[in-house]
Write a protein that binds this DNA or RNA. Structure first.
Lengths: 247, 247
DNA sequence: TCAGGCCGCTAATCTGCGTTAGAGCGCCGC
DNA sequence: GCGGCGCTCTAACGCAGATTAGCGGCCTGA
């Protein structure tokens, strides 16, 4: 088993992310550390974290690695409907809904906390305005889903992929995981194809086109954006749906 | 101007819908009538109710007619990302997010209430568990979006359209707007095409195929499901994502 | 009464993208 | 040291679905 480098990030990515929504103070960071109470869970790449139909009673907070929400059809077709990056919650909604309507899978080796309802209560009681930040986060997730619908329904494969890369760039930057215009893209082309509703072959073709056009470089799981402005133009990218109100 | 028949539905569709999520009593219905306090708003078909970028400070509760959430690209391409049926809220999230990341348009002539934050507060204070029902509704909307992503990304046009019709059937049935296996489908083929990421021509072809297959009849804006079981099979329909826990 | 807009429907053409097949490479376990 | 697997990449082929164009019916307003 290959061990990925696991930085001891804890709630830091989450704190940075929520800080994009509203001004936070050290007291907020301290309150959020209550979420680190439980043990850290691990999961290997390509394994499920939760399956459709289950009824988990915990919320997961991703600490390192990438995971995804996906849905599949009886005949095996599969659609990734969202990526989870460090600092993201997998399904705040389990406190309301009784049954998962989708699955959650680890795309790389991941680490996460399992958070009990009562831990959230502790946080909210200490810093009530964090509830607003958490709901905000949930609604941004919903907004990202809408943008993906627009992408898959209307954008061409090139536009679609360009849009995804810009989105990932901004999200990773928000949690401190981008250096300059580069970031780690630890998932396979198959995952990208499943997220974009494309065949693997055509995804690869599209990737080659982006390289030829001088939009990106991608090698060794490192994505480098060569021309952010042109990439955004191609993607018709409007960052409003991420609702990063600050910075 | 042609006047559509406007039944005096008030909060009845909403009450029925929430009743699918949890057991409600007359006291809940009474509390919900606080939402009818404001004047009824009207909007003609093909007009916008709200535009992307705006910051409405009210939530709309649709009373009659159909509306949609949509997003558009600078070059005019347009994707419908959700339908609003009577009893649906257009954007509970305006209490959290500062700016709309999508537009809302009337597909037919519609009537709706504009609800002030304080009206919600009244309702919640009187019947606290209704907050849970409202959040539930919001999360079901999010689940529907995920299912649409699966549809557009993986289902064939025939499967996709079949799935949409089954979904609409269940949703309309929940608010009392289906009679037997028939319901009013007051939108154009163009709207169906925009919701399914298909061209108008191909949507029409697909519709013909469904008729030939004996799955549906559609004429005069009335959709009749001829064989629900086969339609669900074609669509690979699993109703879990609607989270109707009761009945 | 006529013109124009909206809507449903169909035919012909072309191409973007899926499918199938297969090569090369690096990693891992045996 | 070898076999197998996961991943990237390419070529050839064929079809599903976009595009363009156009007809006819209905409704509405001038």
């Amino acid at each position: 088993m290959r061990m990925t480098t696991l930085t001891a990030a804890g709630i830091e990515p989450l704190f940075r992310l929520l800080g994009r929504y509203m001004q936070l103070e050290d007291a907020d960071r301290n309150a959020l550390t209550a979420l680190e109470a439980g043990p850290v869970c691990y999961r290997e790449a390509r394994h499920d974290i939760a399956r459709e139909g289950e009824n988990p009673k915990v919320v997961r907070l991703l600490v390192s690695g990438w995971a995804c929400r996906y849905k599949d059809l009886p005949d095996g077709r599969r659609q990734i409907v969202g990526f989870f990056l460090p600092g993201d919650f997998c399904d705040l909604n389990v406190y309301i809904l009784s049954e998962l309507d989708h699955s959650i899978g680890a795309l790389t080796a991941v680490r996460y906390y399992e958070i009990q309802p009562q831990q959230f209560q502790t946080v909210i009681e200490e810093r009530p305005h964090l509830l607003r930040a958490l709901l905000w986060h949930e609604m941004v997730s919903s907004g990202i889903q809408r943008e993906w619908l627009l992408s898959i329904g209307q954008r061409s494969p090139l536009e679609r992929l360009a849009h995804l890369f810009v989105e990932l760039y901004y999200r990773l930057q928000a949690v401190g995981l981008a250096t300059g215009l580069s970031f780690d893209l630890p998932i396979t082309q198959n995952h990208l194809a499943e997220a974009n509703g494309l065949s693997l072959v055509h995804l690869n073709r599209t990737l080659q086109e982006m390289r030829r056009e001088g939009l990106i470089e991608l090698a060794d799981r490192q994505l480098k954006i060569m021309d952010l402005d042109r990439l955004k133009e191609v993607a018709m990218f409007n960052r409003n749906y991420l609702h990063f109100n600050r910075q």
